[in-house]
Design a protein around this nucleic acid. Structure first.
Length: 277
DNA sequence: ATGCCGGGCGAAGCCCGA
């Protein structure tokens, strides 16, 4: 089972890219962010024609998150529990894959803009509620869970091109990173980092100043696996190809492949080649 | 210090992203 996350920066503008990627990568579940459209404007016919069910939480112009899945999606929650928010930044549902299904969430964490902006305390408050809700999602140990999205946090120095230049700024601020680590300490695993030790692997490149061409990016899009999901982890990676297309999103998909059953010899920390053994 | 690019909105130029 392949699950992916992708901030598409307008689903309307990126629908062709999304449909192409669904056909090429054949993911079973895709967590989308920045739809930038209202829920009733979701391109349902095109997504369903591609073979996917969907659940969306949209709003006009900004934000918006969705779940695409090859199986039905049930028990959908819109909005981050415990956090009053007019902005559409969280959707959660159960996908009927496997014996117990898998609980998934798509999250679009606020950017924060700058440390002195009023949007920065909003980001931290969102993250506090996220830390709390992530803990509660681990309560059902019989069912794997995956939280994926645009976290707007580069967790470690190897996750951005200029950590010294970014030190203390939003996306690499100690208060953001501390909250990201708090979620890992609960028992969630960063799927990409579990299988890749190397620095310099990014999921977002600014449109401006030739950042893509210079490979000056940040790894801010993540898939977090519950212990039950982590024990099934076979592979994970960042697919750079969509970022190189014309009219690309500034983010590119991050994916993970989970086995149907927990694996006793889970490849945690092992090279990719051994993971497939 | 600011703009760079790109999308939305809406029909020019501003807001916003990260």
């Amino acid at each position: 089972m392949i699950i992916a996350t992708w901030n598409v920066n307008s689903l309307k503008a990126r629908l062709g890219h999304v449909l192409d990627w669904l056909a090429e990568a054949t993911p079973d579940i895709v967590l989308l962010q920045e739809l930038k459209l209202e829920t009733d404007r979701f391109p349902a016919a095109e997504i369903e024609a591609a073979g996917y069910h969907f659940a969306a939480h949209g709003q006009k112009t900004y934000n918006g998150v969705a779940i695409l899945a090859r199986a039905p999606i049930t028990d959908v929650t819109r909005g981050l529990p415990g956090f009053e928010d007019e902005q559409a930044r969280w959707i959660e549902g159960t996908v009927a894959i496997g014996d117990q299904g898998v609980r998934v969430a798509s999250v679009y964490v606020p950017n924060g803009q700058s440390v002195t902006s009023e949007k920065f305390p909003y980001k931290l408050a969102f993250l506090d509620a996220f830390v709390s809700h992530a803990r509660s999602m681990l309560g059902d140990a019989s069912r794997p869970a995956v939280i994926g999205g645009d976290f707007n946090i580069a967790p470690e120095a190897g996750d951005l091109y200029d950590p010294k230049g970014w030190a203390g700024d939003v996306l690499f601020h100690p208060e953001e990173r501390r909250r990201f680590r708090a979620v890992l300490h609960q028992g969630w695993t960063d799927a990409f980092r579990a299988l890749h030790a190397e620095a310099g692997r990014y999921s977002w490149w600014d449109y401006r100043a030739g950042m893509w061409q210079k490979d000056h990016g940040l790894r801010i899009d993540h898939l977090l696996l519950s212990p039950e999901a982590c024990d099934r982890l076979e592979a994970a990676d960042i697919d750079r190809a969509p970022r190189g297309r014309d009219k690309a999103s500034d983010h590119t998909p991050v994916w993970a492949r989970l086995a149907d059953q927990a694996r006793i010899n889970a490849p945690y920390g092992a090279p990719e080649g051994e993971a497939a053994a």
